[in-house]
Design a protein around this nucleic acid. Structure first.
Lengths: 141, 141
DNA sequence: CTTGCTCCTCTAGTCGCTAGAGGATGTACG
DNA sequence: CGTACATCCTCTAGCGACTAGAGGAGCAAG
C-alpha cells in the first residue's frame, strides 16, 4: 500500500489547483484515485508525478489532447517516440509563428504609442491607425 | 437615406464573419441596424467603418472591453486621447511580456526536439524533460 | 414555380478552467 | 468531549469570444 496524499497536498506539491485536479479527473486526464473511508481522494506518488507532468506540459503550452498523447507515450517507454517528437515539433512551429506575429504587433503598437500626440483624439495615432487599416503595417497571424 | 448593405456584404467587406457580426450586435459592440421589410439587417457605410475598426483592433489583440472604450473615444474626437494611449501602452507591455515568455519556450522546445533520439520513448528528450521539471530551463509565465 | 442561396432566431457547444452554493468530514485546542 | 475552523465533497453555472447547427423564411434567377 502506497502512502496516501490528500488533494490539498498533491495540489501544493504539483502546483495545480484543487478544482483543476478534480477537473482533470473529470475529463479523464488523471485517473480517479482511491478514496478514504470518509470519501476523500487519496493520491500516491505516481499521481503526483503525473500531475507534475501535466502542469509542466500546460506551462509549455501543450493542449489537453496533446498531453493525453504525451502521457500515454510516457507510460509506454518501449514505444517509438515519433509521436512525441511530432507533437513537440508542431508545437515549436506554432510558437515560432506566434512570436513572429507578436513581434510585428509589437512594432505596430510602438508606432501607435510613440505617435500619440498626448492631446485630443482627433490627432491621436492610436485611434487613427485602428480606424484606417491602410495606415497599419501589421498584417500578421 | 444611406445605401443599404446586407450582412453578407458587410461581412465580406470587413472580414468579420456573419455570425460574429450578429454576436457583436448581441453584446452591444455594434449598434443594431435598421431592418428591411423582410426583417433583414440593413447596414450603412458607418457600420462598415465601425466593423473594420473592431476587426482591426481584434487582430491587434485588444479585448472586447478595450475595443468598447476605443470605439467611444473614436466617436468623440474632441476628447483627450489619454485613455486610448493608456490602453495601447498597457497592451504593448503585455505583448512584450508574451514575446519574452514564448521565446524562452521556443528555446526549451528546440532543446527537446533536437535532443530527441528518434528512437524509443525511453531515451526521448521530449518525454524526459516533460516528466522531470528539474531538467527544464523554462520557468516563464 | 422551383431551385438554391442568403437570411432569420434560437440553443448549445468549444477550451480550460474558475466560482460559488450547500453540505460532510477531519483536526487542533481548551 | 465539545467546538471552531480548515479542508474536503458534489453540483451547477460562468468566463471570453466566438462557432455550429437546427429549423424556418425571404429573395433572385431560370
Amino acid at each position: 500500500m502506497q502512502q496516501a496524499i490528500t488533494i490539498g497536498s498533491v495540489s501544493q506539491a504539483s502546483g495545480v489547483k484543487v478544482p483543476t485536479i478534480r477537473y482533470y479527473e473529470q475529463i479523464g486526464l488523471l485517473p480517479a484515485p482511491s478514496r478514504t473511508e470518509g470519501n476523500r481522494r487519496s493520491y500516491d506518488h505516481r499521481d503526483l508525478e503525473r500531475l507534475t507532468f501535466i502542469r509542466h506540459s500546460r506551462e509549455l503550452g501543450f493542449e489537453i489532447d496533446e498531453i493525453r498523447t504525451l502521457l500515454t507515450l510516457h507510460d509506454r517507454p518501449d514505444q517509438s517516440c515519433e509521436d512525441a517528437d511530432a507533437i513537440a515539433s508542431k508545437h515549436l512551429v506554432d510558437v515560432k509563428q506566434k512570436i513572429a506575429s507578436l513581434t510585428a504587433l509589437q512594432h505596430e503598437l510602438e508606432r501607435m504609442v510613440e505617435g500619440c500626440s498626448h492631446g485630443r483624439v482627433e490627432t491621436c495615432k492610436v485611434i487613427d491607425i485602428l480606424a484606417d487599416h491602410g495606415k497599419c503595417r501589421f498584417h500578421g497571424e
